[in-house]
């Protein structure tokens, strides 16, 4: 089956005063219909830029400097802005961390929903309003007919994020990109939104790219996970494997640094140092200066993402390293 989304060797650059900064380098992944791909990694790893590149919203002078983005096998990274605008909202839905960036504070919730529905379908005003009501009901807004004419500020944070989900799904998109959809919410409300996102996408058969810091959210929502480090994918695989038996030393460190509810530990695993600045990415494996297991090839040769067990990992521990390295 054709994947809903294919990203091939994506490279994103930002020209800056101090030279060209490569924010994303050689990133490739697929998302199948109905599948949830989690994207994790520390701040600045390039998660949001990857999502932004997919929807064609990289702000100039930033640009896609290489690779392709395919939606159901059709290239979309080279479409004229006008055509791309139609795809966003219709075929790709978006949910961001702060619901207020997606909602216009000046318009009533109902008006915004009806407008979105009518832009992407031929429904009449009254049919669109009916659909808006049923969407609000679906995302769990109680008594939607009494709330549909409220303004965004009259809703709590959790309710606003529900409305944003309703908006993102209004046009029945094939792909939903959710960037930190629950980070601004309380744990209790977080669980409600995640359950909702998962149920809706399953019902509508949408593929989901779920970007978050929160491994807990990934653990219960994602089918597969991509772990990003310094603009590259360090490891990608089924959620169980990546969480329970991570391969890449960075993923191991990341998993160990999360305090657990289930058992006591005196110290958390600590990855020494911090992620490099993108203008000064180390040669070889970008993780090597912080890696407890770095050896001969790591400072010099860049490991590619290669299959290992049911995952793919970019680390010399799992691949035969080039002969020239042995000679060093």
């Amino acid at each position: 089956m054709t994947p809903v989304l294919s990203v091939r060797n994506l490279k994103v650059e930002f020209p800056t005063r101090r030279g060209v900064l490569t924010a994303i380098d050689d990133v490739s992944f697929d998302i199948a219909p109905g599948e949830v791909l989690g994207v994790v990694g520390e701040s600045g790893a390039g998660k949001s830029i990857t999502g932004t590149a997919v929807i064609g919203l990289i702000e100039p002078p930033g640009r896609i400097a290489g690779g392709e983005v395919l939606l159901r096998g059709q290239r979309i990274d080279n479409l004229p802005p006008e055509q791309m605008r139609k795809i966003r909202g219709k075929r790709i839905g978006m949910v961001f961390q702060d619901p207020l960036t997606s909602l216009n504070p000046l318009y009533r919730i109902g008006y915004q929903l009806v407008e979105t529905i009518r832009t992407h379908s031929s429904l009449s005003e009254s049919a669109a309003r009916k659909k808006a009501l049923s969407l609000l009901e679906e995302v769990g807004i109680p008594a939607p007919d009494t709330r549909i004419d409220a303004y965004p500020h009259q809703f709590s944070g959790g309710m606003r994020q529900r409305v944003v989900l309703a908006l993102a799904l209004a046009a029945e998109p094939e792909l939903v990109i959710a960037d930190e959809p629950t980070t601004a919410l309380d744990v209790s409300v977080q669980a409600q939104i995640i359950a909702l996102l998962k149920r809706l996408c399953a019902q509508h058969g949408a593929a989901v790219m779920l970007i978050t810091h929160d491994m807990g959210v990934i653990a219960e929502t994602a089918d597969r996970v991509a772990v990003m480090y310094a603009g590259r994918i360090a490891e990608i695989g089924p959620v169980r494997e990546v969480i329970k038996a991570p391969l890449h030393p960075y993923t191991k460190g990341l998993m160990g640094s999360i305090p657990s509810l289930a058992h006591d530990s005196d110290r958390l695993v600590q990855i020494p140092g911090s992620m490099p600045r993108l203008t000064a990415i180390p040669s070889g494996c970008p993780f090597h200066p912080r890696c407890p297991r770095a050896f001969v090839p790591c400072p010099t040769f860049r490991p590619e993402l290669q299959p290992e067990q049911s995952s793919q990992v970019a680390c010399w521990l799992y691949h035969p390293f080039p002969v020239t390295a042995a000679a060093l």
Partner: peptide, 10 residues
Amino acid sequence: LLDAVPDLDL
């Protein structure tokens, strides 16, 4: 609150 915590230990 405890029930609402995501199950990271799978």
